[in-house]
Design a protein around this nucleic acid. Structure first.
Lengths: 321, 321
DNA sequence: CATACATGTGTAATCGATTAACTACGGTCT
DNA sequence: AGACCGTAGTTAATCGATTACACATGTATG
């Protein structure tokens, strides 16, 4: 910057003013400064600028797993929305581990992100409190924690789940295997509660960890126990369950019915296509980013609750008639 | 930091030494400082530290599309490797757009990442030159550019592609539709050249843009032209092609054979499972991160060339016998 | 013609860390 | 006792920007 100033025959203050679009500098001065910048290939140091202004124009996003397309889509939407407001997003991968999640959150805070979007790995509120105590704007996404005091953006699957339950029961299924998420996550618990509630005593629950492998294992156990229908509570466990069903040579929906929470681009391509409960991922991501930006700008956004929808495709068999 | 120093009755220099594990401070002083840090909940400002040390312990990774599982896996691997060396990764999504790619690269440079990993959207070397001119360590990943002067990490699919070609020809296919990547990307061009080369005059090429929609369109065109086998040059176009095949009610492999470049967890679950050329994504990501770290540490790593493998699963029909 | 005021630019403090150079202190050795 | 040395800790410069305040110049006003 000093070099630029020297080249243009002005002070660094003036260079800074030109850079920041202040009204002060003469068009002629501005011209000279811009020429010098161009000539020297100068690029301002964002670190220094942020240090001085205490604003990084950056949002932190901590998610459980980038390989999970559900989170990848959310990340993508967050990024789009943030970018359109001049913000950058730094993504942290927590790998469904509370410890790694905490590490990432702290790293992001150390780098002074202007705000944080968090999909908490567990419903333990201590990390959330730590962030809030630091005074950093925080919005929870997809999942919440016990006694959360910050805005939350999530999808409500209750309606879709009860509709699904009604169809399964109506089709005469009496042993319905539920491949549930971890009970210490809000989404894991809530979805399972709603579904088992609507299924009366027909549900048999096995808990997984939102990963493919656990989906296979849970499916195996449930099939062994005589389940005639499976409901996987997220797409990775759905993938695992599907693998197990195929490995056993069972036909969907003839031998067993299957429904999955979360949609995937390839679900319609299976034979039969898989019936799902689709979450509005893009909307969730955008809404979360907007809420966070609002918070950063001193407004107090409301919680956002979007609706997940049941998409019938055929993998339930007669239940879909 | 000043507060901590005051609390512990020392100067900020001493606090800094404790923080950075210098030998100087007495165990007793160290103890006092740590206590003060704990008590005040002090966390060092990474921006200030980086400004002073000119090192951010951060790598930039610019990829074409986070929603493409191929890149998501790479990102994940890069991150793992980087983290194990105490580095953070900031991911930028270029969306297969050269312009957005350039924007992201510049943003990352402005933030003074210690090194940059780039999957170039096109083979135009100007952006690469710009980065190199800035003296920032740079490694290219998956794709290269014309006259690249920096280390490159990529997968070689030639062997797998010729093997695939041999099988298709051997099975008597005479009209083989190739859904190619953009000709201005190195991977797009090379893969297509190798395959069409080995297919003699039997190949019919339609170019897509590495996205699902273009895969459907290309497949439609090729099927209309009487192709009896399709080869999609990346997984998203493969997904599109598969959709088109299904939409027309064609049976794989009876009516048409299909092979896809890039593997996906759900390909084995289709009926029949899809034959693919699998790239070692995790190895690619790790290798790229390692090369970049080497470069940052003043070493001069060699190019890395890993091997993609043909995985036969059944979607080629008799060609797989 | 002096005074007030607007305007464009420069000076220097500041953000929060690191670190070279210096000081103070105590202990050894002749 | 005096010279010398090692060690623990302080002072202050520095990284590269922003910005309050001061200053100089030019124009309008009484």
């Amino acid at each position: 910057m000093k070099d630029v100033a020297q080249h243009a025959g002005v002070s660094t203050a003036t260079v800074s003013r030109v850079l920041n679009g202040h009204a002060a500098p003469t068009p002629e001065t501005r011209e000279r400064v811009l020429a010098a910048i161009e000539k020297l290939g100068y690029r301002p140091n964002a670190l220094a600028r942020s240090l001085r202004t205490t604003s990084t124009q950056t949002l932190g996003l901590v998610i459980s797993d980038l390989l999970n397309p559900f989170f990848a889509e959310i990340a993508r939407a967050v990024e789009d929305e943030a970018r359109s407001h001049g913000y950058c997003v730094v993504i942290g991968n927590a790998d469904e581990s509370a410890e790694q999640e905490a590490t990432y959150v702290r790293t992001l805070l150390d780098r002074r992100v202007d705000g944080l979007l968090l999909c908490p790995a567990t419903d333990d509120p201590s990390l959330v409190r730590e962030v809030s105590a630091g005074g950093v704007p925080l919005v929870l996404l997809d999942r919440t924690v016990r006694g959360a005091t910050c805005p939350v953006v999530r999808a409500d699957g209750s309606e879709a789940l009860t509709a699904l339950a009604r169809r399964l029961v109506g089709a005469g299924h009496t042993r319905i295997g539920v491949i549930a998420g971890p009970p210490n996550t809000s989404t894991g618990r809530e979805r399972t509660d709603v579904l088992t509630g609507s299924l009366g005593g027909l549900a048999q629950v096995v808990h997984g960890d939102f990963r493919q492998e656990s989906g296979s294992q849970a499916a195996a156990k449930l099939i062994d126990d005589g389940a005639t229908a499976l409901v996987a509570m997220d797409n990775l466990m759905g993938l695992g369950a599907l693998g197990e069903v195929r490995a056993r040579g069972l036909q969907i929906p003839h031998d067993i019915a299957l429904a999955v929470f979360d949609d995937q681009p390839w679900f319609p391509l299976l034979d039969p296509p898989i019936t799902v409960i689709a979450q509005p991922t893009v909307e969730m991501g955008r809404a979360a980013a907007r809420s966070l930006l609002a918070l950063i700008n001193g407004r107090q956004p409301d919680d956002v609750r979007l609706t997940a929808k049941l998409v019938l495709r055929g993998s339930l068999g007669e239940a879909e008639l």
